[in-house]
Amino acid sequence: MRVDLNADLGESFGRWRLGDDEALLPLVSSANVACGFHAGDPATLVRTCAAAAAQGVRIGAQVSYRDLAGFGRRFIDVTPDDLYADVLYQIGALDQIARSTGSRVSYVKPHGALYNAVVHHEEQAAAIVAAVVATGRELPVLGLSGSALLAAASAAGLRVIPEGFADRAYSPAGTLVPRTEPGAVLDDAATIAQRAVRMARDHQVVAIDGTVIDVAPESVCVHGDSPGAVAMASAVRAALAAAGVEIRSFADGA
């Protein structure tokens, strides 16, 4: 058994610090690095990519709506053409930064409200996929299983990576419970670790109403901006290892 473990990194901005990237990087196999649209200034992104390259952690472009003030967690009814250009810009910028540190962008993952929107929003999903295709690199796309995004990426011939969330509550329909609702974000490290193991080994997760949902994630996410993120990621990594699950990036060898 093998699974990727990813976290959101590079989300500090100027003197404002968010998360502990240095402590998280040794624990994960893939880093979803902000691209400056929801978080992350250029100097932060250079430091994050350099640290990820030094640790041998794969770098993903975490593309977002243009929403620094809202941390990318507000839906924006952007036109497909504008979203295509924004995503292409973000991938290109982060890839050049990553290459300057001896690495490169190895996959693409939407952030926040954009991630949730393209579960169902077909036009925005298609815009993201078109931008990935335009890079000419056939980058894998990381997203929620059953989403419009992964369907569009698969139809375009891209590799799709279904993702599971150890620290987020699921609805009975298999979507993420909105952060505005009670219980949407989990904070108990032991519980999160158990959920990660069940996802990776048994391909199941328990929804917020007790329903057991079938999932088959190739990558499990622990949010880097959550309080106690390092303790959670440590617990998840230890629990996966104890269960005989190898932690390895899906992008290794790509």
Rank of each mutant, 00 (worst) to 15 (best):
S145C: 05
V177N: 03
A155M: 02
L240I: 11
R168V: 05
A239C: 11
A235E: 12
R168G: 09
T191M: 11
P217M: 10
A153L: 04
I208S: 13
R159Q: 11
V206H: 01
L158N: 06
L158Y: 06
S234W: 01
G183Q: 10
V197Y: 05
A166R: 08
A229V: 12
S226H: 15
A193F: 13
A193N: 10
L149A: 06
A229E: 05
A155E: 14
A235S: 12
V230H: 08
L158C: 03
V185H: 07
V220C: 09
H203F: 01
F165I: 09
Y170H: 08
D188P: 02
A229G: 09
S234V: 08
M199D: 04
A216M: 04
V205T: 11
R201D: 13
A169H: 13
P178Y: 10
E218I: 03
R179Q: 13
V230A: 05
P227I: 13
R168T: 05
V236E: 05
D167Q: 08
V205S: 09
A152H: 14
T175F: 03
A200W: 05
A207L: 05
A238F: 04
D187C: 09
V197P: 01
R168S: 06
R195G: 06
A166Q: 07
P217L: 12
D214S: 10
S154K: 11
S171I: 00
A153Q: 11
A238P: 02
S219F: 03
D187Y: 06
A156D: 04
D202V: 13
G157H: 07
V215A: 03
S234H: 07
I213N: 01
D202C: 09
I161N: 06
A231K: 05
A153P: 13
P172H: 06
A173M: 01
A173I: 00
A169K: 15
A200C: 06
P172K: 08
T175I: 03
G228N: 09
D202N: 12
A238I: 04
D225S: 07
M232S: 09
D209V: 00
V212M: 07
S145T: 10
A207T: 04
L176G: 05
D187T: 15
L186Q: 07
L240H: 04
P217I: 14
A193Q: 11
T211D: 03
A153C: 08
G157E: 07
P182Y: 06
V160F: 00
A156L: 02
G164E: 02
I213A: 05
S226V: 15
A193I: 15
I208N: 12
Q204V: 15
R195Q: 07
G164V: 04
L158M: 04
A233S: 14
A200M: 07
P178D: 09
D225E: 07
H223K: 14
E218M: 14
P227Y: 10
M232N: 07
E218D: 06
A196L: 10
A207E: 01
L149W: 04
D167C: 09
A148K: 08
L186A: 13
Q204H: 12
